[in-house]
Structures are given as structure tokens and as C-alpha cells.
Amino acid sequence: MIMKILAVCGFGVGSSMVLKMTLDKVVRELGVDATVENTDISSAKATLADVYFTSFELKPDLEASTDKPIYAIKRYMNKDEVEAAMNDYLATRKDA
């Protein structure tokens, strides 16, 4: 089954696109079968995904609307930070 990953920012345009590009690179390098989409916070709350990546500021808002894992990323272009969060998620998945 293909994993669905959401990169979330306030308006779904700038920073979530940067985070999506970094997530795309990490997913490809790790060989994870996933789709990565970027979106705004309002849409993210209404969209089912396996895991969400966002900012520390938006994480509490997302937590109120989903029981899925949410990872706060400080530096969206830092592949090592994003990869560490992805590896943490992959290690905790029940169907892995």
C-alpha cells in the first residue's frame, strides 16, 4: 500500500512546497513507496494521510484534528533533519 505524506504550512504554497521537495528526496533515497503532497493547514485537517510534517507552530493545531503521527520540522531544506523524522516514523509504523 502506498503511504500518503502531507507537508503542511499556513497557506499551502511556499514553505510546504520546500518541505515537500525535501520529503520527496528523502522518500526516494530511502526507497519508501509514498506520495508526498503539500497543502495548507485547513485542508490538512480535512485530509487523511499516514503522516504529517509541519512546523512547530502548526503542530498543535493539527494534533487536534488527527490521531496520525505529526512531525514538526525546524529547517525544511535540511535533508538530515527530515530524514531523521521519517526514519523515526518508519520505525514506529505498525505495518512495517
Results as ranks from 00 to 15, higher is better:
Met1Thr: 15
Met3His: 11
Ile5Asp: 00
Leu6Ile: 10
Leu6Lys: 10
Leu6Ser: 01
Ala7His: 04
Ala7Pro: 07
Val8Glu: 00
Val8Leu: 06
Val8Asp: 00
Cys9Ala: 06
Gly10Gln: 12
Phe11Pro: 03
Gly12Ile: 03
Val13Asn: 12
Val13Glu: 12
Gly14Asn: 14
Gly14Gln: 10
Gly14Ile: 04
Ser15Trp: 01
Met17Thr: 11
Val18Phe: 13
Leu19Gln: 09
Lys20Trp: 05
Lys20Tyr: 03
Met21Ile: 01
Met21Glu: 14
Thr22Lys: 01
Thr22Ala: 10
Leu23Trp: 00
Leu23Pro: 03
Asp24Tyr: 07
Asp24Pro: 07
Lys25Cys: 03
Val26His: 02
Val26Thr: 09
Val26Glu: 03
Val26Ala: 06
Val27Trp: 05
Glu29Arg: 08
Glu29Val: 11
Glu29Asp: 13
Glu29Thr: 06
Gly31Gln: 08
Val32Gly: 05
Asp33Cys: 07
Asp33Gly: 06
Ala34Val: 01
Thr35Pro: 02
Asn38Glu: 07
Asn38Cys: 14
Asp40His: 12
Ile41Pro: 03
Ile41Val: 15
Ser42Cys: 11
Ser43Leu: 15
Ala44Phe: 08
Lys45Phe: 08
Ala46Lys: 15
Thr47Ala: 08
Leu48Thr: 08
Leu48Gly: 12
Val51Trp: 07
Tyr52Glu: 02
Tyr52Gly: 01
Ser55Met: 05
Ser55Arg: 08
Phe56Gly: 08
Phe56Val: 10
Glu57Leu: 11
Leu58Cys: 02
Lys59Trp: 04
Lys59Asn: 05
Pro60Gln: 13
Leu62Asp: 01
Leu62Ala: 02
Leu62Lys: 00
Leu62Ile: 06
Ala64Arg: 15
Ser65Cys: 11
Thr66Asn: 14
Asp67Asn: 13
Asp67Lys: 14
Ile70Met: 02
Ile70His: 00
Ile70Cys: 09
Tyr71Glu: 09
Ile73Gly: 00
Lys74Pro: 05
Lys74Val: 06
Arg75Lys: 13
Met77Gly: 03
Met77Val: 07
Asp80Leu: 13
Asp80Ala: 12
Glu81Pro: 08
Val82His: 02
Val82Lys: 05
Glu83Leu: 02
Ala84Glu: 13
Ala84Cys: 04
Ala85Val: 04
Ala85Trp: 00
Ala85Glu: 04
Met86Lys: 04
Asn87Val: 08
Asn87Thr: 09
Asn87Pro: 10
Asp88Trp: 09
Asp88Ala: 13
Leu90Lys: 13
Ala91Lys: 15
Ala91Arg: 14
Thr92Tyr: 02
Thr92Ile: 07
Thr92His: 06
Ala96Gln: 14
